[in-house]
Write a protein that binds this DNA or RNA. Structure first.
Lengths: 138, 138
DNA sequence: TCAAACTGTAATTAAAACCATTACATTTAA
DNA sequence: TTAAATGTAATGGTTTTAATTACAGTTTGA
């Protein structure tokens, strides 16, 4: 299985955006995502670090958006949860006598970086507001 | 992250492109990538299925490109090895009473698909010939 | 003031993904 | 006919990921 943190985080943020201003607990969010509340809380911490949400402890605690859904794009969430790069670079040491081997790491690094940028650029164009609109239109 | 199969496959293809027309064995390729010959052979099978290379069994066997490096782009290799999608969709069943939960799967599917397309579009712009040129220019 | 309902966080377990490795049948060249 | 390859199945070990348990700290409100 691949890392679902980004997927989970988008779900959580969409749920928060769907009920503007409301404070929602990790229990409720976990039920919506169908995962464990602790998993949700860890993601909420990451989203809070990125200043996308604020959280409240104690009874009636939970999380709430800090910005408007149209001001939050998926790249904000992507950066908040810091998923592994789309293309991993082979970190093993090169075969000295092989010209290709000696240069692949730096070459693949550039490919990986530019691909990452392409993904981020794409995600930048999708806002939470758009996702919420899709939820509502069904 | 996508697994290293794509990274390994690009390395292998670059090595083949670096020695045009030459048949190179899995042993040699594995040494360049710094992995096991069996791992390489499995990738070679995938690349062959995609008709990017041809392989030869028996003594002096190995692999060779079937097209010119400038006619092979990284998306061809990407498609050949079929890595897991960049964004995985949460396949768990939705919480019936939650409107967001019920719609997230189809919404995230579209996000995942379009992101995949963004990656493929980017990779389509990078050819093996370009990578080989970079190897040579060092 | 105390119990209930939360969050924050560490530690552990379980499952999945990934790659390496072994083994061997088959093919080919010399 | 032997040596050197590929093709491919099976197995094992490591790493990654998510689930779970546990509990201290915070807040609300009866």
């Amino acid at each position: 299985m691949v890392n679902q943190q980004f997927t989970f985080a988008v779900h959580i943020m969409t749920a928060l955006a769907f009920s503007p201003g409301e404070v929602i607990g990790s229990q409720t969010l976990a039920a919506s995502v169908n995962t464990n509340p602790v998993v949700v809380r860890r993601l909420l911490l990451a989203l809070r670090r990125a200043r996308l949400i604020e959280t409240f402890t104690g009874k009636h605690g939970g999380a709430r958006l800090r910005k408007k859904p149209r001001e939050i794009s998926l790249v904000d969430i992507y950066d908040a949860v810091e998923p592994r790069p789309v293309i991993p670079v082979n970190e093993r040491k090169a075969l000295k006598k092989c010209h290709v081997s000696c240069n692949m790491k730096s070459i693949m690094s550039r490919v990986a970086e530019s691909t990452e940028e392409a993904v981020r650029k794409h995600l930048r164009g999708i806002t939470l507001a758009q996702l919420v609109r899709k939820v509502r239109s069904r």
